[in-house]
Design a protein around this nucleic acid. Structure first.
Length: 651
DNA sequence: CTGGGGAAGGGGCCC
DNA sequence: AGGGCCCCTTCCCCA
């Protein structure tokens, strides 16, 4: 798996402000290699293949941060001989910018297979658009036809292209008129990215000024501002080349004196910590900045997405008409912006209809997209998601979390979990839901209706679940039992709260300086290096809390007491990949990243001598005065976060 | 502080 | 594809 050291050796880019969908960044800069002069020792992780026509022309290596400006949250688009990046969707403030790349590349990056049955969803990156380009088209449009490519240097499994110039998109998308300058030369900076103050203004959405600005210096330099939430970065002289205008020669069209205020540097990119989301189904792609390809014989119908899913196969949006129609008003930051072609050719319904996978494809399991047989011709006839067979039944696998579904519709609903799409909105309170049934259930809140009645006490409930819970009061059933004291509960949450009474008093490894104790020696070591103020660590309540969580995690529990630093590191990594128990649930992934960084530093940095000594003494003293936790006590901790089942808890 | 009950939301399966 | 239903989880409030 990806090592922490790698994680923290790479610079990440975060948005400081909302970036509208369709914003373009670029061009990519980096070390240029021809096919023949690639150094033997070159790390090809960040290689970009640049095509001329269908021929591989050269590579751009984005690895060297001193020489490149690559970013990884966007879809890349080869434009002539340059690479630009387009935002796939609006980028929220503080969201990291990442570039999509394929599952194959992800696997190579992570160095292991993802199909081991674990939920390695966070590892799974998705979707790369890789397109070829004909030389004659270069001549036609002056080299402005975009083709996209991925960050790997293996032979592409597919190629496709957009025949529509980005100019067309830009014009229609933003509503400005083409300028001669833009016609003749691509602007090697991003377009239409309003500042905070400009965001809601019409002019910001029609950044014609960008078009009329002189092209910026291709060599540019940006010193990012360090956010107050990441004070540890203040000591570093972080900079990112290229994207935002020259330090001495301001060139950024909108921000002539300063880097774009919505961009700033944050902790390093970590594909495990901040996994790129897959191309969101439905609601995002129709508003994609990418020009809709003109029809060709071997291409999907107009309106189909040319994004490639896993294994380089096309990723078709899964949107439904309802989703398309309802998405935008409910998500002001994800404005639905009908593509000009949609407006011209019938709008949403046609678009949605055209977005369906090729008819018949789901019913042809022999066209498994996992195999080469799935690709007949240029490869547009495959499904957007992997298929597999389990016990003779077709399974539809989520590209993001690898969960499989027996029915396609279930997968489609499931994908909303990842896309954030919530197509069903309550008219009264404007809350939105992923499923109609949830909205219908929610409506009962407003109507006061309680359709489910307890036959014993005639109390009424809005849901069967709540009635069922209630019925336990009459039946005396208490399925949730504390293993330590035997107390039984009717609800799991009550057991969960109760069990905390037992923990906290049985953690043998106490910090001699503060009132914290841990189950594991390595946790105490982490604490002392990462968050013990008495040891000179910065006060960080979050890191402190996370060390505690990790200490109580299954991953930590599985480690031997004398676990090596690398073992602890790997366990923390697994823990994070699993969602870190509550961290992800609270939507605070960046904070979790901060923890991992702290963990990494704590693991890798040589410990303060005093800390080690006192820590060892404390551990020894603690061990002496308080025996090792019993398996039972440890189990209670492990199960603290474990998904409960009636069976196990009742045993 | 702890146990207990209900309200509400979210994910997934089956039809 | 969509409706119905179930299970699970969390939050809130109260005794």
């Amino acid at each position: 798996s990806l090592s922490l050291s790698l994680w923290f050796s790479v610079t990440g880019v975060f948005s400081k402000e909302y970036i509208p969908q369709g914003t373009r960044f670029g061009p990519l800069q980096g070390v240029v290699y021809t096919k023949d002069n690639v150094p033997k020792m070159a790390d090809r992780k960040y290689f970009w293949r640049i095509y001329r026509g269908r021929q591989l022309h050269h590579f751009v290596d984005g690895e060297d941060v001193q020489k490149s400006n690559w970013i990884r949250n966007l879809v890349a688009c080869q434009n002539g001989q340059e690479v630009f990046f387009y935002t796939m969707r609006p980028v929220e403030p503080s969201q990291e910018l990442l570039v999509w790349y394929s599952a194959e590349f992800s696997q190579r990056l992570c160095g292991h297979q993802q199909h081991d049955g674990h939920r390695h969803s966070e590892y799974r990156t998705n979707t790369l658009v890789e397109m070829g380009q004909r030389t004659d088209e270069l001549a036609i449009d002056g080299g402005r036809n975009p083709t996209t490519s991925c960050g790997w240097d293996t032979e592409p499994t597919h190629s496709c292209r957009w025949n529509t110039e980005p100019r067309s998109y830009d014009i229609e998308r933003w509503g400005f008129k083409p300028s001669n300058h833009y016609n003749t030369r691509p602007i090697p900076l991003f377009i239409g990215c309003p500042s905070q103050t400009q965001r809601n203004t019409e002019t910001s959405r029609h950044p014609s000024s960008a078009l009329n600005s002189p092209p910026p210096s291709p060599r540019s330099f940006y010193h990012g501002r360090i956010p107050s939430t990441h004070p540890h970065l203040l000591q570093r002289d972080l900079h990112l080349h290229g994207l935002y205008g020259h330090k001495e020669v301001p060139s950024y069209p909108f921000y002539p004196q300063h880097p774009p205020p919505h961009m700033q540097l944050l902790p390093p990119f970590n594909p495990l910590r901040f996994p790129p989301m897959p191309p969101p189904p439905g609601i995002f792609l129709p508003a994609s900045p990418y020009p809709t390809p003109l029809p060709r014989r071997d291409a999907p119908p107009r309106g189909s997405s040319y994004l490639l899913g896993n294994n380089g196969l096309p990723y078709f949006p899964l949107g439904q008409p309802g989703a398309l129609a309802m998405a935008s008003p409910h998500h002001p930051h994800q404005p639905y912006l009908p593509h000009p072609h949609l407006a011209l050719h019938g709008g949403l319904k046609e678009r949605a209809a055209n977005m369906s996978p090729p008819s018949g494809a789901p019913a042809t399991p022999e066209l498994s997209p996992r195999g080469p047989a799935a690709r007949s011709g240029p490869g547009y006839k495959a499904l957007p998601y992997p298929l597999s067979k389990q016990n003779g039944k077709i399974k539809y696998e989520c590209n993001v979390c690898l969960k499989t579904f027996g029915q396609l519709s279930n997968l489609k609903v499931h994908l909303r979990v990842h896309s954030g799409e919530r197509p069903f909105q309550c008219d009264l309170c404007k809350k939105s839901f992923t499923q109609l049934a949830h909205l219908q259930k929610h409506n009962l809140v407003h109507t006061g209706e309680k359709p489910h009645e307890c036959q014993v006490c005639h109390k009424r409930f809005s849901s069967t679940s709540n009635l069922k819970t209630h019925l336990r009061l009459h039946s005396g059933e208490k399925p949730f039992q504390c293993k330590l004291c035997g107390t039984k509960f009717t609800q799991y949450i009550h057991l969960k709260l109760h069990r905390r009474l037992h923990t906290g008093h049985q953690r043998p490894y106490r910090c001699p300086h503060c009132a914290v104790a841990y189950f594991h020696r390595f946790s105490l070591r982490l604490h002392q290096r990462a968050c013990c103020q008495a040891q000179g660590s910065p006060a960080n309540a979050f890191v402190r809390d996370m060390v505690e969580r990790f200490d109580a995690s299954q991953e930590a529990e599985a480690l031997p007491e004398g676990a090596s630093a690398s073992q602890v590191e790997e366990a923390a990594e697994r823990w994070m990949a699993r969602g870190s128990e509550g961290v992800e649930g609270k939507g605070d992934r960046k904070e979790a990243g901060v923890l991992l960084e702290a963990l990494s530093q704590a693991i890798n940095a040589p410990p303060p001598r005093a800390a080690l000594q006192s820590g060892a003494a404390a551990a020894a003293a603690a061990t002496h005065h308080s025996p090792q936790p019993t398996n039972q006590a440890r189990a209670s901790v492990v199960h603290l976060y474990k998904r409960p089942t009636v069976k196990t808890e009742a045993q």
